[in-house]
């Protein structure tokens, strides 16, 4: 024999559901103590991760987690823009020519070309230190 569903109206459905829920609620008191302890521990763990919401300028309320910097630091994406900016600054500083060096180097080139500085001067061991001193 196969049972068929009997249709219920809204009131009957609610009454029936009330009966089921009543029984299920009674069942809550039968959960074993070790399981209740695990559930309590889970709640404590969740509350350890909980951050009170923060209201910014009395207008926007955001999760405390959002403003927690230690939370952001752990995320790889947090470091990406910082890395990009560092690389950009480093690259720029390398690409900008050292004006002082250019000045000294240019002067030496001119002297070499005009013959005022003999090319053998580069073989002189003190010439390097003279160039450095004059560029300071």
């Amino acid at each position: 024999m196969i049972y068929r569903a009997t249709t219920m109206d809204d009131k009957q459905e609610k009454n029936f559901a009330r009966g089921i829920v009543h029984s299920l609620n009674l069942g809550l008191s039968q959960i074993e103590e070790d399981k209740l302890a695990r559930i309590r521990k889970s709640r404590q763990r969740a509350m350890a991760a909980y951050r009170e919401p923060v209201t910014i300028l009395g207008m926007v309320t955001v999760s405390g987690q959002t403003l927690d910097i230690s939370n952001w630091i752990r995320k790889p994406l947090f470091w990406l823009p910082i890395l990009a900016i560092s690389v950009a600054i480093g690259g720029y500083s390398l690409s900008v020519p050292d004006e002082k060096f250019d000045e000294t180097g240019g002067e030496l080139d001119a002297q070499l070309l005009t013959g005022e500085l003999p090319i053998n001067a580069f073989l002189d061991k003190d010439f390097g230190s003279w160039v450095q001193e004059s560029s300071q």
């Binding site: 399981k35 559930i39 889970s42 763990r45 969740a46 951050r51 999760s63």
Partner: peptide, 22 residues
């Protein structure tokens, strides 16, 4: 499964506490 159910409850609690405190 009781063990899996306990894990599910723990994960759910952790998630709501971490992500939806606002």
């Amino acid at each position: 499964q009781d063990e899996s159910a306990l894990d599910i409850v723990q994960d759910s609690m952790l998630k709501i506490a971490e992500k939806y405190s606002d």
